[in-house]
Amino acid sequence: TEAEQLTPVLLDGLREENLQFVSKLKDSSSSCAVDVSSVWWEAAGCRKLCVVTACESSVSLWKPLALDHWEKVYTWQLGEIPVIQIVPLPDTCNLVCIALGNLEIGEIRLLLYSSENNSFKQSVVKTGNIKAVLGLKDGRLVSSSRAMQEQQVEIVSLSETGRCKDRLTLMPPEETVLAFAEVEGMRDALVGTTAVNSVAVWNLKTGQLLKKMHMGYSYPASICHRAYSDSGLLFVVLSHPHAKESESCGNPAFRVVAFNPKTARSAGVMFSSLPPGHAGRYVEGEVKDAWAAAVLTSGAIAVWDLLLGCCTALLPPGSDNRWTLVRWSAAGAGLLAGRADGSVCVYRYA
C-alpha cells in the first residue's frame, strides 16, 4: 500500500506519468517535520546536492549515497526556540539558513561548517518580530520586521563563511510585508505582498520603494512566490489560501497577475486550479520557474505547469499519512515531498 501512496495518479488527458518516485529518506529519531529543503554542500572537494530536514528542535543535513540511499551527515541542535522554516539561499554552498520562533519568526540563524576550526556551527543573523524572510541571489537575505509601530525592511549580505558583510535598509510601506519575491533577471528589483493585498516594488541598490499597487480584495491574503518582467509589465505569481470558490475556476491555488508598474493597474492572466473531480484547497506550496506545487487540504500534493495553466501531476494522500510539505529542489527538476512523520520522498518531475 505504501508503494501505491508514493505513486502519482494519472490525470485525465495526460498520456504519461511526469512525476517519478526516486528515493525516500526517514529520520528515525524525528517525528515532527516542519520543513525540508535542498542545499549544495561541499566536503573533501566534492560538491553534492544534499537534503536538509527540520523538526522543531533540530536541523539535519543528508547527503546522497549510491543506489538512492541517504546518509545523515550532521544534526544541529537548536535549543528552546522552535524552528519554523528553512530559508533557502540560492547560489550558496555549505550554508543553511533557518527561521525560529513561536507563532512568528523571532530569530534568523545560519547553520554552517567552519573549516577554520573543523566543526559545524551556528550564528544568529537577525532577531526581532520578523514577518517575512527570503533568501536572494548572491548570498543576500531580505526580511521585514516590526518594532513598535515602525516596520523595518532590511537586506543582509552574507559572506561564504556566514558573516554579515553589509546591511541595507529599504524604505518600508505603511502596511506589513508578508512575503517577498525576486524579480527574475533584474538583480536590483524586489517585490513584496502586504497585509492589505498590495504589491510593493523596491530598488535594492538604492533602497527606494518604487511603487505600491493594490490588487483588490477578491483574493485576500495573497502571497507572492515569483516575479518577472516582460514587455513592460511585471508578472507576479501569487498563491491564494483564502480565495473564494467559483464555477469558472474552482479553488485557485495559484494565480498569475500582470501589473503595469507605471500606472499601478493590474489584470489576472491565469488561474491554477485542481482538475474537476478533485477536492482540496491550497495549504502551502512553492513555485520554481514555470512549475508550481502545493499541499492541499485533502492531504494530496498537486503540481501545475504555469505556462500550460493546468495541473500536471497529483500525489494522493495516504490513508493515515498525509503529505504536509512540498519543495522544489535547488537543482534540476526534483521535488521534495514531506510527511508529518519526518519522512521525505524525492521525485523527479519531467
Binding site: M171, M186, D188, A189, V201, N203, T206, Q208, L209, L210, K211, S229, S231, G232, L233, L234, A258, F259, N260, P261, K262, T263, R265, S266, A267
Partner: peptide
C-alpha cells in the same frame, strides 16, 4: 506602446520609477 486595460507601458519602467521615486 499601450494596453487598453493596463494603460501605457514602458520597457524601462524600473529606471523611470527609480528616477521619480524619493531617495
Amino acid at each position: 506602446c499601450s494596453d487598453s486595460d493596463l494603460g501605457p507601458v514602458s520597457l524601462d519602467w524600473f529606471e523611470e520609477l527609480s528616477s521619480e521615486a524619493p531617495p
